[in-house]
Design a protein around this nucleic acid. Structure first.
Length: 613
RNA sequence: GCCGCCUUAGCUCAGUUGGUUAGAGCGUCAGUUUUGUAAACUGAAUGUCGUCGGUUCGAAUCCGACAGGCGGCUCCA
């Protein structure tokens, strides 16, 4: 057995051990499923009126340790399916009974396959299971395919994490059960390491840092999912958007501007209305009977600019670029921090081009994405998101196949790491989705490049071809940051708020040793010079001790702090205090003020992460 | 939207089984101090205890609704 298989068996066995403990403490518990998940395991239980909370974990863990110490062997038992069903009935395990009935009928418990069985893809009874296996540890027996470790004593280190609601079989129409999560590793050391990582993640939580670093706020009066950005947070947004845009304007993208609402006619034409109508915010006019829609995406508007005049094959590609906000009426329970908001700002762009231009256009966009993520220091991986066999997609299957192939070719040609997944496409076309890995090894979906043959058709977009006949352009959607809000959530946690100089809301802080006029004047002069160089510099000449002012600058994670006193004024030179994640070459530089400011300005201009001081 | 938990000063949090004028630290403001690389000293102000309704002689404390937040589920153009 490989280490991976061994760990899997440990976690799976722990799910059983937890269920064993739950059964000891709550004899009426009904069990759902208890699988292995990333870093651990969970078990879904129905305890009727009893609600578990994290306060119960201590005694639950104690009971689990008891089961572990007793070192019961995991015994495998085979039962004919009907006997198993009878067993479930006798033990009041109605969820298990449901699973067994599915096994008997369709040979599977996977909901997706069950649909197929109902549709007749799997003939009734054909794949039916005759025997099922159970595993028994001590006084607990559970329907289970295995594998398990030999005995309850061999499960490594574990800790219960949390309890939450979960629908039986993931369907919101079903009963809601309580899901108890635990993490588990082969050794205590690995478990501690993982717990430490979780602690670090908590410390870096963008919601916490957003408040501490004064980047964004929410207001009850404005509403949930509607973040307000402070001056500091706005610097981040604008610097990021400017960078993202610059990577495309150099490839011929032109900025456009559209209003944030529209008649719903636009979305009826695009197909969004039928598909996403309930997620749109509606805006009523008080004067006329007009009802407008807040835009949930930008492409339909952009097609209207394209379609505003006749286009020649010579005009293509036409490339529009716009950083703009869309609005989606996300369900309240899905909102959280900047990860999921109702006002979503996209660094969006749309290319309208000929078939023979697709490859080059996609190439430019992939290159831009690569550059952006190398500058922000995150590793990229690509998901090719294809359609599945469902009917949720517009456009002919042949078109889809060809589009999917072209995307793959472009990804391969760009040497990107990729994997393919069906069912992840947009309704109008396949996508290249970029996944970025952050400093804690977590992966987040960020940029996206999408090919679209459907909207040009629905909007009747045209250009006059070389042969004089009307032809249909292809659209390529692209957002490099994705949603600026979500990107910020990811990026704040990636950097723990220690932004590189080009992004830092405050790049330099000057701290005066005293409030004497000549000191304040000197600081003002430096601030003036910094302003001319386009630097963001703040002077702190408050009536506090130098130590306290240093501390304040440290807490705000300012890259460079300079103390100004007698010595600096006399010599016109100083040694900047450098935030400790920044590598300084050479170490302990002493330089004059002008030299220092110019160096920092260059660093910002070059968007370098490591200092060049 | 669903399940569970939570909401006390700008921030982080105390607040005994329901019982007078609701507290602390940080921050803010005022004064003293003129400060040398992660917290000087003294003093002051600050709250519809999320909102509305109910129970009670009496509610920050108990109950309900709503709003907002957190952890999941479901969803994510």
């Amino acid at each position: 057995m490989s280490d991976n298989d061994q760990l899997y068996a440990m976690r799976h066995s722990l799910a059983h051990i937890m269920a064993t403990a739950i059964q000891h403490l709550y004899p009426d518990a009904k069990f759902g499923v208890g699988p292995v998940v990333e870093n651990g395991f969970y078990y879904d239980v129905d305890l009727g009126e009893t609600k578990l909370s994290e306060d119960d974990f201590e005694k639950l863990e104690a009971e689990m340790h008891k089961v572990v110490d007793e070192n019961w062997p995991f015994e495998r038992l085979e039962k004919p399916i009907d006997e198993a069903i009878t067993w479930s009935q006798e033990h009041g395990q109605s969820y298990k009974e449901e699973l067994l009935n599915d096994l008997k009928r369709a040979g599977t418990t996977v909901a997706k396959d069950l649909d197929a069985a109902e549709l007749g893809t799997i003939a009734e009874g054909e794949a039916a299971v005759e025997n099922v296996s159970f595993y028994k540890d001590g006084d607990f027996t559970d329907l289970c395919r295995g594998p398990h470790v030999e005995s309850t004593g061999k499960v490594g280190a574990f800790k219960l994490q949390r309890v939450s609601g979960a629908y039986w079989r993931g369907n919101e129409k079903n009963a809601q059960m309580q899901r108890v999560y635990g993490v588990a590793f082969a050794t205590q050391e690995e478990l501690d390491q993982h717990l430490h990582m979780l602690e670090e993640a908590r410390a870096r939580d963008h919601r916490k840092l957003g408040q501490e670093l004064d980047l964004f706020v929410f207001s009850d009066m404005v509403g949930s999912g509607l973040p307000l950005f402070t001056p500091r947070g706005t610097v981040l947004r604008e610097e990021l958007a400017t960078f993202s845009n610059s990577l495309r304007t150099r490839h011929g993208f032109e900025k456009v501007f559209i209003p944030h609402m529209t008649k719903k006619d636009l979305y009826e034409a695009s197909g969004h209305w039928a598909k996403f109508g309930d997620e749109l915010f509606l805006v009523k006019s008080q004067e006329t009977s007009d009802e407008l829609v807040l835009k949930p995406m930008n492409c339909p508007h952009h097609t209207r600019i394209y379609a505003s005049k006749p286009r020649s094959y010579r005009d293509l590609p036409v490339r529009y670029l716009e950083t703009t906000t869309v609005y989606r009426d996300e369900k309240t329970g899905e909102l959280g921090g900047l990860n999921r908001v109702r006002s979503i700002t996209q660094d969006d762009s749309h290319v309208f081009c000929r078939q023979d231009q697709i490859e080059n256009e996609i190439h430019n966009l992939l290159e831009a994405a690569n550059e952006l993520y190398s500058v922000v220091g995150m590793e990229l991986r690509v998901r090719l998101s294809y359609r599945d066999d469902g009917d949720a997609y517009l456009g002919s299957p042949e078109l889809w196949l060809s589009a999917q192939e072209q995307l793959k070719n472009a990804v391969v040609a760009n040497n990107l790491k990729y994997f393919e997944e069906t069912g992840e496409a947009a309704f109008y076309g396949p996508k290249i989705d970029f996944m970025a890995t952050d400093a804690l090894g977590r992966e987040h979906q960020v940029a996206t490049v999408q090919l679209d043959f459907v909207q040009p058709e629905r909007f009747g977009l045209e250009y006059t071809g070389e042969d004089g006949h009307a032809a249909q352009p292809v659209m390529i959607h692209c957002a490099l940051l994705g949603s600026i809000e979500r990107f910020l959530a990811v990026y704040i946690e990636h950097t723990a708020g220690k932004f590189p100089v080009w992004l830092a809301p405050e790049q330099i802080r000057l701290i005066t040793v005293n409030q004497e006029e000549k000191t304040v004047e000197f600081a003002g002069k430096i601030a003036e010079q910094a302003k001319e160089l386009g630097l963001r510099l703040v002077v702190d000449n408050s009536n506090e001790s130098v130590g306290k002012k240093i501390r304040a600058a440290e807490l705000m994670k300012v890259p460079y702090t300079v103390v100004i006193g007698e010595k600096e004024m006399r010599m016109e030179r100083m040694i900047p205090r450098v935030r400790k994640d920044i590598e300084v070459i050479p170490a302990h530089p002493e330089m004059n003020f002008e030299e220092f400011l110019k160096t920092v300005a260059n660093e910002a201009r070059g968007r370098v992460t490591k200092s060049s001081l």
